[in-house]
């Protein structure tokens, strides 16, 4: 029996348990940034007319800039990968069959940071109609580097091993960069521009939360869950 079918079976097995778990406690909060806001690099997309056009038609995003720091009102931070780093019981978790979707749009990855579970499908879309290549550079997983030409609108892949966010890039368009995180469990979230995250379905226990940002590294926070309550953990990245 290969790993995938074993996992699927395990998934069915845990299904009831998980519905129970869903009802458990949770943790939510807001991630904010403090410090000088750097001027982010703007991208020169001149080699790809299609993408230039896309951005020109969207004045708010023109010129396109690096998404290394995405701030909302009140310096709330987007693109923070939040996960339970420790405290979870040893077990195999159900893997959603629903794919996460990573779009290559306007020569940028949307979203810029994406997370999924081990063996969960990830669907890559190419809505630019130009050649992209999907080049992931993980430590644990197999590196992939596949062509995504105009005529290939989507391709579905998955990752075998859990690991922290690793880069995905497009060699054809050197400014294109994003991150993919692969988690063994479903307790993770990625903040939006409003800096908010929420992780639910946690059993009683002591957990360590880890917040990751591509440039500023990680921060951790401890949280104790009991009953159905949702704890609040706010965190600030400063530099």
């Amino acid at each position: 029996m290969d790993k995938r079918s074993k996992l699927r079976l395990a998934g069915v097995g845990y299904f009831c348990l998980l519905t129970l778990l869903q009802a458990g406690g949770g943790v939510k909060g807001t991630v904010t940034y403090s410090g000088k806001v750097p001027r982010l690099k703007s991208f020169n997309m001149a080699i790809e007319a299609v993408c230039v056009a896309k951005h020109e038609n969207d004045p708010e995003n023109y010129p396109a800039r690096s998404e290394a720091l995405v701030l909302g009102a009140g310096n709330t931070m987007g693109n923070i990968y939040v996960r339970i780093a420790s405290g979870l019981p040893e077990r195999e978790w159900e893997v959603p069959s629903e794919p996460v979707v990573l779009n290559q749009d306007g020569c940028q990855y949307k979203p810029h940071v994406i997370a999924l579970q081990v063996e969960q499908p990830i669907k890559f879309l190419n809505s630019d109609g130009v050649l992209h290549n999907l080049h992931t550079i993980p430590e644990e997983n197999d590196e992939t580097n596949v062509t995504m030409p105009p005529f290939l609108k989507e391709t579905v892949r998955s990752f075998e091993y859990a690991e922290g966010p690793f880069p995905i890039k497009c060699d054809v368009h050197p400014w294109m960069g994003g991150f993919i995180a692969v988690s063994e469990h479903p307790f993770f979230d990625i903040t939006g521009k409003d800096g908010k995250f929420e992780i639910s379905g946690l059993e009683d226990g002591n957990y360590q939360l880890e917040f990751w940002h591509e440039k500023l590294g990680t921060r951790t926070a401890d949280v104790t869950i009991s009953g159905d309550e949702t704890q609040t953990v706010d965190i600030t990245f400063s530099r």
Binding site: N133, E143, N145, V146, T147, M148
Partner: peptide, 14 residues
Amino acid sequence: TGLTGSAMPTVDGT
């Protein structure tokens, strides 16, 4: 099979 580690992508899947 591509040239893993280089920029050269594979056409497998395409």
